Simulated assay, not measured.
Amino acid sequence: MDVVALLGVGLLAGTTTVLFGFGGGFVTVPVVVWANAALGADAARVAVATSVVVMVVNAAFATAVTPRRTLAALRGGRPLLLLLAVGGVAGAFATRLAPGALTHWAFVGYTAVTLADVLLRPGFLRPRAASAGSPGPRPLPAVVGAPVGAVAAFLGVGGSVMTVPAMRRAGHPMRVAAALANPLTLAIALPAAAIHLAFVPGPGGGHAAHGAPAGLVDVRAALALLAGALPVIALLRRRPPRIPDRLHAWAYAGLLAMVAAAMSLFGP
């Protein structure tokens, strides 16, 4: 039954990858914690590692099917991508060393802080109207790459929870901000996934409860999630839903609230 549930969550992860740029991280971490509840505090570490691997595939596929004209907004962003990757390596090693309970509650806390930020600080739910003479959307500064990558890889969220609000406040509509979050997520998740897959836990520690573990990764959960997610990503990229920008932003905030509540309920 857990495989059926994981397939269903994979469908949701594919939807959030396209609509919110999450790559599945904010959806997959709570459900993999649930699937590996027998591990206790280590469930959060396995969930983060599994989420990062799922995000690599989801984000890469979503980026590949994104129109080139949309991705052109990242032109000249190589320093940002490089620093995101450096941060991703640091965050993956931090997950490997940190206690599972710390990873779990850091995820909950960061989600809550981000939710408060998008609800209370101007520019996300209520973007400033562009005037005729105002410049176009601003690029993200490269200097934010390392800290964003480190936090994202440590929590298994891929970076979109930070980059989507930042790009929206920089002048992008939600549709574009979510699409651009996928290549940024890929830059973080790819090196982080390599570390999680290579890491072999010590005796009695860190093994996934289901399927054959590779490092800290629950392979069975990852495959089930991807089987559900990839067809949805392909479908929604070919026929993107028409969602009003304000409603799109509120839906993003609502999903953050749901995820924070779910992780709180499954606390170690």
Rank of each mutant, 00 (worst) to 15 (best):
A49D: 07
F26S: 12
L97A: 14
G215W: 05
M162I: 14
A153R: 03
G206P: 05
A251M: 09
A177D: 00
R121L: 10
L82G: 14
V4K: 12
V164N: 01
T17V: 09
V29F: 03
L84K: 01
T111S: 10
V161D: 00
P231S: 09
A49P: 02
G88F: 02
L223M: 10
S160P: 05
D245I: 03
N58A: 05
Y252P: 08
A209D: 04
S134N: 11
P122C: 05
R168L: 15
W250E: 11
A257L: 15
L83M: 08
M1W: 15
A112T: 14
P201T: 11
V143I: 10
G145Q: 00
V113F: 15
V217E: 08
M263S: 08
V161Y: 00
L190K: 02
L71W: 12
A209G: 04
A253S: 09
I243N: 09
P173Y: 09
P231E: 10
G204L: 06
H172W: 05
A92Y: 02
T63K: 06
G109S: 13
P137E: 08
A178W: 02
A101M: 11
V9S: 01
M167W: 02
T95I: 00
G171K: 02
M162Y: 10
V161Q: 01
V54Q: 05
P127V: 00
V29W: 03
R78M: 15
L83I: 04
T111V: 10
H207I: 06
P137C: 09
G204F: 07
L236M: 11
A262P: 06
P203Q: 08
I195H: 09
T50G: 04
G133Y: 09
L180P: 00
P191A: 01
G206Y: 10
A60C: 11
F124E: 06
R68S: 14
R78Y: 12
P173K: 12
V148E: 03
T15E: 00
A209C: 04
P122Q: 05
H196W: 15
L74T: 07
S134A: 12
A222T: 01
P213G: 13
G88C: 05
G159D: 01
L6R: 07
R69A: 15
G100R: 04
P183L: 04
A60S: 11
L97S: 12
L230E: 04
R168I: 13
P268S: 11
P173R: 12
F20I: 09
R169V: 09
A116F: 13
L74R: 09
G10L: 00
R168S: 13
P122I: 05
A150D: 06
A194E: 05
H172F: 10
W250M: 11
V18P: 01
L180H: 03
G109Y: 15
Y110I: 12
G91R: 03
L83E: 02
A47Y: 03
P67L: 08
V52R: 01
T111C: 10
V217K: 08
G254H: 06
T16S: 08
V54F: 06
A260E: 03
G23W: 00
